[in-house]
Structure formats: C-alpha cells, structure tokens
Simulated scan of single mutants.
Amino acid sequence: MQRTVTKPSGDPRWPLFSLAFAFFTVGVTSLSVVGLSHWISQDLHILPSQTGLLVTAFALIYAVAALLVQSLYGHWPRRRLLVTGLVVLSLGLLLSAGAGSFTQLMLARAVAAVGAAMIGPVASATGSLLVPPERQGQALATVFGGFTIAAVLGAPLASVLAPSIGWRGVFLALAGVGLLAAVLVFRILPPVAAGQRVTLNTYRRGLSVKGVRSTLLVTLLQIAALFIVYAVAGSYLGGRFGSSAEWISATLLGLGLGGVIGNAVSSAAVTRFGSRPTLLFTLLASAVTVALLLVAPSLPWLGLALLFLWSAFANMFQAPQQARLIGLHPTERGLMLALNASILYLGISLGSWLGSGLLPRLGAGHLVWPALGLLVLAVLLSQRNRLGSNRHDA
C-alpha cells in the first residue's frame, strides 16, 4: 500500500504542465525516429522498414523497465525519480547522436528507454495526486497530453529538421529538450511523497484484482493495432496512397493533431457518457476507420484524413483507461499506472514489430488487416468485461 500523501497546496496547473512536458520528452524520443527513418536508413545502410525496429526496441525496454523501476526505485521521492529519468533519457539521446552503427543506435535507444520508464508512470501517478478526486480524469488527460503533443511535433518536426541539421542533430536537440524538462520539474513540481518499493508479490496482488488483467489486455491490443501502421507510416503511406515526402510529413502532422484533439475531448466524453461507453466507442470507431483504410481510393488526402480520425479515436482511449485502472485498485495507483505504461509500450513494441515484419510480406494495401483483427478482439474483450462487471454488480 502507498504512503499517505498530502496534496500540495496552490494552483496545480504549472506542476501539471511540468509533468506534461516531461511526458512530452518521452513521446518525442520514442516517436521521432518515425520521421527520421529515411535519413537513418541511408546513413546506416539499412532498409527503411528496419527503422521500425528502433521503435520496437525502445518500447520493449520501456515495458520491462517500467516494472523494474517501481521495484527498485518506487520508494524514491517522485521529483527525484522524474529528474533522474530525464537525465538518463537525455544521455541516451546524446549516445544516439553519436552512434556509428545500427547496433550502437539500438543500444543508445535502450538507455533512453530506461530513462523514459522512470518518467511516464511516475508523471501520471503524480499528476493524479495533485488534484481532488473529481478532477483526476482531467489531470491525467493533461499529463498524457504531453505525449499526444509529442505525436504532433515529434515525427513531422524531425522529418522537417533532418535535411538541415541531420538526424544526429535532431537527437542532440532532443537531448537539450530532455535537460530543459529536468530543470522545469526540479523548479516547478512541489514535493510529493513517494510510494513504497513494489515487490513481486505486489504485482501479483495487483494483477489478481478483478478486471485488471483483461483491462490491460485491451490496452495492449488497442495500441498494437495503431503501431502496426504508425511505426512504418512513411513506407505505408507511399505504398498505399502514393504519398510524396510532403504528404507524408503532412499526414504525420495530422496523426499528431488527431491525437491532441482526441485526448482533449476524452475527459469531456467521460464526464458526459461515462468511461465504459467512451472506451467502447473509441474501439468501435477505430475499427470502422481501419476498415475504411482497406477500401479507400489511393489518394494522399484520404490517407491523411483517415489516419487523422484513427489517431483521434485512439487517443480518446488512454485517459479513461488510466482512470478505470485506478478505480479498480485505488490504493495502488502508481502500480496500476506502471502496469498500464508497461503494457502500453509492450503494445507499441508488438505493433511496430508486426508492422516492420509484415509490410514486406503483405504489402501496404493489406497491412491494416492485422490491425483490424486486433481491434475486433479488443472490442469483444471490452464487451465481455462490461457484461461480466454487470453480472458481478448485480
């Protein structure tokens, strides 16, 4: 069980902003390689689709490290843990900028992922502690909004900057962003007491709570479906919609903007309709959008529009899903959010691995079939969870 936490007094908006900016560094670090794939592949002499493995490696290390961090450092004061994570993340970006081979770049990404794992779950848990319970959903959406803004700026901005400063220069710039985030968190975030060190038994107890495992599986399926396409977005858009480099950059920007809009409206949707209906809507709407990707004419603007919609629906999912997990086990919110972050990045790893491996085999025209299958499974599992919960409540 976590230690009793006294909520810091004062306006929480600036502390929440610092947490959102910390989450932004995580998102931009993990996703910027999507916009750098062309330059990395040329410089390191690999196939463009192989750069999706850089997303896979980052996400897989993050998924494991997010759980280990709670075990090894969960007892640290949250501000110290966040600042340490941001420094390690920046070190990984500096190493990425100096990588002389694809293997070295993968190892540098692993260092950055360990730092990121010290940030994401802790930022969300801290944000939820800065506000009263009735504003928890809004706080979670604000903090996670840093990740969605990273989706707007990360890949497209990286693709715009790379021709002038190179992909190594982009990583150097991101290292500076990470250090700036560390300064902001150190200066702005008030002291917030830490939780306890999480043990293996704690994880077992958390996973044994009714509904937790199936809820986490829905997260895995939902995010994996999106990253089947997102991790190889440039190659997919060029092959499926005939998108030029300019259209690819515009579509990546559209993906990010859709994510920001989806995240922004998620808390209002939950307030009006409830978390369960909102979650089901996002999954169904995502599945319909993916089905349209299969039959839409090969026009670049249609690719942009449909991926914009998919991103919006996908990002409506995260804030209510995090709030639902906290509701299932409120005394261990840090644990629940660490598990969700781990599963989230495991899904990113799975999706990007599938995208990288299946694109050469299926071709761009059929790549979204596996994504549609994962979303259908997520819908069915979500409905089973709802019906099971209703029977339990009855």
Rank of each mutant, 00 (worst) to 15 (best):
V55Q: 07
L130R: 01
H38M: 11
L375M: 11
G176Y: 10
L307K: 07
F186C: 01
E246Y: 04
A371V: 01
A158D: 03
W310Y: 09
S235Y: 01
A20W: 00
G373P: 00
A233I: 14
I326V: 08
L16S: 06
T142Q: 05
T51D: 08
K210Q: 15
L129I: 01
L292T: 07
F241V: 14
G27E: 05
W353E: 11
T51G: 08
Y236H: 02
P190I: 04
H392E: 15
Q2D: 15
T282I: 09
P297L: 12
L107F: 14
P360V: 04
L161N: 06
L387I: 12
R79L: 09
A182T: 03
G52F: 08
W301Y: 12
Y73N: 10
P297A: 15
S159R: 13
T199C: 06
L36Y: 04
L95W: 14
F144A: 10
G259T: 07
E332L: 00
R324S: 12
T278H: 08
V5A: 13
L86G: 02
R361C: 12
I348E: 11
R272H: 15
G176F: 12
R187C: 05
W369H: 01
G74I: 03
I261Y: 12
G262A: 11
F317H: 14
L283K: 00
A323Q: 13
